[in-house]
Computed example of a mutant assay.
Amino acid sequence: MSWNLWLGGSPVDGHRDKQLAVLLAADVDVVGLQETAVHAAPELAEALGWFHHSAGENLAVLSRHPVVDTLGDPAVGFYGAAGARIRLDEHPDGTPHELVLWTAHLNYTPYGPYDACFGGLPAAELADREGESGRVREIDGILAAMAPDLAAADRTPVLLVGDFNAPSHLDWTAAAAPLHGGHGPVDWPVSRAVERAGLRDSYREAHPDPVAAPGATWSPVHPRHEDGSGRPEPQDRIDFVLHAGDRLDVLDSTALATGRIAPWPDVAANDWPSDHAAVVTTFRFARRG
């Protein structure tokens, strides 16, 4: 699972219990969190009896399975990435089966779907604006930090999950242009960068057609733009579960937002304690080799 908790969940009453209910109902094994507000991960891990690694004020990994190493800068800022090596089990010959999970959060402004749908910028200018946002620089730095893990991904699978605040070129196709204000194709540079690094988009593997399965994660609480204009909020897939290596087979993937979800600003009583949908991918761990 990848899940942005929305300022730790604070806009929603009883958010910690609601977060626990979501995690238990989803029956997940490993989770990359963003916007943890420092306390979410240790409190959730204690309540679940799980392991965790928290980095800075914003990022964390939760796991049913032992965290055997931590990766990245432990004092990472609000935007960036942090990782953990997780031991799943052991082969009968004593060889450990492990995976590496990195969780990332990229800068939120300027936001490409707003530039496209509200600003009417053409595809070339949208790519330039991504550079201005800092997201391209951020993802390049994250991929550089992940390079040793990615080089060994066929032995130890690698996941990169997170809120990229950027769409995917796999979604903004010519066929899907009506979903994106008439824009498409758009060659979004952040999704291209992770693709070049060898990371595959698990949601698009499970659902190859972006028209039939848009998979929007932003935003279940914002059907209308919050500026009061009444114009529709662009709904987009900006949260991802990406994977590298040949040992993880995608069985299914879903954008998850459940229960009562009233729109902003009347969110305090919502069952779903976030402004993002989570992404949950089910993998089969293939014991190849």
Rank of each mutant, 00 (worst) to 15 (best):
R231T: 13
R192H: 12
G162N: 04
Q235V: 01
D163N: 12
A176E: 08
A206H: 08
H225F: 14
A206E: 06
W188A: 15
S202F: 05
T217Y: 04
H183C: 01
H222M: 13
H222T: 12
D236R: 05
Q235H: 05
T173D: 04
L199C: 09
G198H: 13
H207D: 06
R200L: 15
P167M: 00
P223G: 08
G184F: 08
H225T: 15
D187S: 13
P167Y: 05
Y203P: 05
G181S: 11
H183L: 09
G162D: 01
P232L: 03
P223Q: 09
R204H: 02
Q235I: 02
A212T: 00
E233A: 10
F164Q: 05
P210C: 03
E226V: 15
W188H: 15
G184L: 10
I238G: 03
S219M: 05
W218R: 01
D236T: 15
P232G: 10
P210R: 07
L179D: 07
P220Q: 13
R231Q: 14
P220M: 09
P185R: 11
P178R: 10
R200V: 14
D187L: 12
A206V: 04
R224V: 13
H183E: 02
H207G: 04
V194I: 11
T173V: 10
H222S: 10
D239A: 05
W188D: 15
H222I: 06
W172H: 09
R237F: 11
P234E: 05
R196V: 15
S202H: 13
S219P: 04
T173I: 11
D227M: 08
R200H: 15
L170Y: 10
D201P: 04
P185W: 12
V221I: 15
V241Y: 06
G215C: 09
V221E: 13
P214V: 04
A206M: 01
A193H: 12
G230A: 07
W172N: 09
H183R: 07
P214D: 03
R204C: 01
T173Q: 09
A206W: 03
A177W: 07
H225W: 12
P232D: 12
V161S: 14
G230E: 06
A175D: 14
P185T: 09
L160P: 12
P167A: 02
D187R: 15
V221M: 13
D201L: 06
S219G: 02
A212Q: 11
V211W: 08
F240N: 00
W218N: 09
S202Y: 05
A212H: 00
H180G: 04
P210F: 00
S168Y: 00
T217A: 08
R231I: 13
A174G: 14
P214F: 02
E233F: 10
G230I: 13
H222C: 12
P189I: 13
H183Q: 08
A175S: 10
W172G: 11
D227A: 07
H180L: 05
P189R: 12
W172R: 08
A193Q: 05
G162W: 07
A175G: 03
F240H: 13
S191P: 00
I238K: 01
G184W: 07
W218M: 03
G228L: 12
